[in-house]
Computed example of a mutant assay.
Amino acid sequence: MNREVFRKEEQVLGEARAAVATAQDKGKPVAPVFSSLVDEYGRLLRQSRRLVTMGDRMQQTLNSLNHDLAVGEQKYRGIFENVTEGIYRCEADGTMVEVNPAMAAMFGFRDSESFLASVRNFKSLFCSPEDYELYESLLRADDVWRYQVKTCGPESGTIWSEISASAISGQDGGATDGVVGVMADVTERKHMVEEMCRLARTDSLTGLFNRGYFMDLAARELARVQRNGGGLSLLIVDVDYFKAVNDTYGHDVGDKALITLSRILMNSVREVDVVGRFGGEEFVVLLPDAHRPDACRVADRILEHVRAAMIDASDGSFAMTVSIGLTSFEDEGDDLDSLVKYADIALYAAKKNGRDRVEVYRRSACSCRQADCVEAATAGGGQKQ
Rank of each mutant, 00 (worst) to 15 (best):
R17Q: 06
V20D: 01
V20F: 04
V20I: 13
V20C: 05
T22K: 11
T22L: 12
A23F: 03
A23L: 09
A23M: 08
Q24P: 00
K26W: 13
G27F: 01
G27S: 02
G27T: 04
G27C: 00
K28T: 09
V30L: 08
A31Y: 08
V33H: 05
F34Q: 01
S35Y: 04
S36N: 08
V38E: 05
E40L: 10
Y41N: 09
G42T: 04
G42K: 01
R43N: 07
R43S: 10
L44F: 12
L45S: 04
R46W: 09
Q47W: 03
S48K: 10
S48T: 05
R49K: 14
R50H: 12
L51V: 15
L51M: 15
T53L: 14
T53K: 15
D56S: 14
R57I: 15
M58C: 14
Q59K: 10
Q60R: 14
T61W: 11
N63Y: 13
L65M: 14
L65E: 14
L65G: 10
N66L: 15
D68E: 13
G72T: 15
G72C: 14
E73L: 10
Q74V: 02
Q74N: 09
K75Q: 10
K75Y: 08
Y76C: 03
G78E: 08
I79T: 02
I79C: 03
I79Q: 05
I79G: 02
I79D: 03
N82T: 05
N82I: 00
N82S: 06
V83E: 06
V83Q: 05
T84E: 15
E85V: 11
Y88K: 01
R89Y: 12
C90R: 04
E91V: 02
E91P: 03
E91Y: 10
D93R: 03
T95N: 05
N100F: 00
P101T: 00
P101E: 00
A102E: 04
A104H: 03
M106N: 02
M106P: 00
G108E: 11
G108N: 10
F109E: 00
R110P: 03
R110C: 07
D111C: 00
S112N: 06
S112Y: 08
S114V: 07
F115H: 05
L116H: 04
L116A: 03
L116C: 01
A117S: 13
V119M: 03
V119D: 08
R120E: 06
R120A: 07
F122D: 06
F122R: 07
F122C: 05
F122Y: 11
F126L: 00
F126M: 01
F126I: 00
S128E: 14
S128C: 13
S128G: 08
P129W: 00
L134G: 09
Y135C: 01
E136G: 09
S137Y: 04
L138T: 08
L138Q: 08
L138Y: 11
L138S: 07
A141T: 15
A141V: 12
V144R: 14
W145L: 00
